[in-house]
C-alpha cells in the first residue's frame, strides 16, 4: 500500500509582508503516498535546514482538520482539490509520480502575507468581535432543558457552526468576500432561540465590519461552498441576507 512518488514543487517564498515574493522550485523525491502534504513540507524543511537554507514558513497546528490554522492554495484550489478536506488532511496518495504542485498563500487584501505561506487572518476575528456571540455573562443561565429546540433547527445550527474559520472561502472568492464565514456564524446563532434577541444587531454589525475590513461582496460565484473544507452551504449566505434585510426594514438597529 505504501507507495513512493517524486514531484516538483513550486512554492511561494516571501520574506516579509511588504517584500516582493516569488515562486521557487523544489524537487521532492521519494515521498510516501501515506503522508499528508504538510508532512511533505516537513520533509522538505528538514532538508532545507540541513542545507543551511531558510525553511518554508506555513501555519498549521492540529493536523486533523479542525483547528483551521492551516491553509494554502494548491494547484489553484484552496486546501487542494479534494472535496471537504483541509490542507493537513490532503494526502499524497491523491497525486501521481511526476506531478508538479504549485503551493501559494491565501490571496486577499484582508489577509496580508506574514511570510511565505503564512497569512494574517485576524480580520476574521474582528468580524466575530463585531457581534458573533450571544451576550450572556457567566452564571445565571436557566436549566439547559428549559427551552426545547427542534432537532432540525439544532442540526442546521450545527451545520453552520462547523465552520473552522480557515479563510478558504475568502481565498476562493473572486471578490475575496467573507460572506460564507459571516453567514455561517449569523445563521448558527439566528437558528437558535437563544440567538434571536440579538439577531438583527448581529447581522448588521457583522456585515458592516466585513465591509470595513476590506472583504468584497458576494456575487453568487459559489466558489466558497465548493472549496470549504467543512462543506458549509451557501444557504447560510441566503439566510444571512434575510437576517440583514429583516434587520434593515424592521429593527431600529443601525
Amino acid at each position: 500500500m505504501n507507495k513512493f512518488i517524486s514531484l516538483t514543487l513550486r512554492i511561494w517564498r516571501q520574506k516579509r509582508p511588504n517584500e516582493k515574493g516569488q515562486f521557487e522550485t523544489y524537487p521532492a523525491k521519494d515521498i510516501s503516498t501515506d503522508i499528508s502534504i504538510l508532512e511533505m513540507l516537513d520533509v522538505i524543511n528538514e532538508q532545507l535546514t540541513l542545507e543551511g537554507k531558510d525553511p518554508i514558513a506555513f501555519d498549521h497546528d492540529c493536523r486533523e482538520g479542525i483547528c483551521g490554522m492551516c491553509g494554502a492554495v494548491v494547484n489553484g484550489h484552496p486546501h487542494g482539490s479534494e472535496k471537504g478536506t483541509t490542507l493537513c488532511q490532503l494526502h499524497m496518495r491523491h497525486f501521481s509520480d511526476g506531478d508538479t504542485i504549485v503551493i501559494e498563500p491565501w490571496r486577499s487584501r484582508a489577509f496580508p502575507i506574514i511570510k511565505d505561506l503564512a497569512v494574517d487572518r485576524s480580520a476574521l476575528d474582528r468580524i466575530i468581535q463585531a457581534g458573533g456571540y450571544i451576550s450572556v455573562n457567566t452564571g445565571g443561565a436557566p436549566d439547559a432543558n428549559a427551552i426545547p429546540i427542534a432537532q432540525e433547527a439544532a442540526d442546521k445550527a450545527m451545520d453552520a457552526a462547523a465552520c473552522i474559520g480557515c479563510g478558504a472561502c475568502v481565498a476562493a472568492c473572486p471578490n475575496a468576500s467573507a460572506m460564507l464565514f459571516s453567514g455561517a456564524k449569523i445563521s448558527h446563532l439566528a437558528l437558535l432561540p437563544q440567538g434571536k434577541p440579538e439577531a438583527a444587531k448581529r447581522a448588521i454589525h457583522m456585515l458592516m465590519a466585513m465591509d470595513a475590513l476590506g472583504f468584497g461582496n458576494c456575487s453568487n460565484e459559489r466558489e466558497c461552498e465548493v472549496q470549504c473544507p467543512k462543506e458549509i452551504s451557501i444557504v447560510n449566505i441566503a439566510r444571512m441576507n434575510r437576517e440583514f434585510l429583516k434587520a434593515s426594514f424592521f429593527s431600529s438597529e443601525k
Binding site: V136, A141, A154, L189, Q194
Partner: peptide, 13 residues
Amino acid sequence: IDHCVAQGIPFAR
C-alpha cells in the same frame, strides 16, 4: 451545560 446552551452551543437533541 446550562451556560453553554445559553451561549448557543448546538448540542445534539
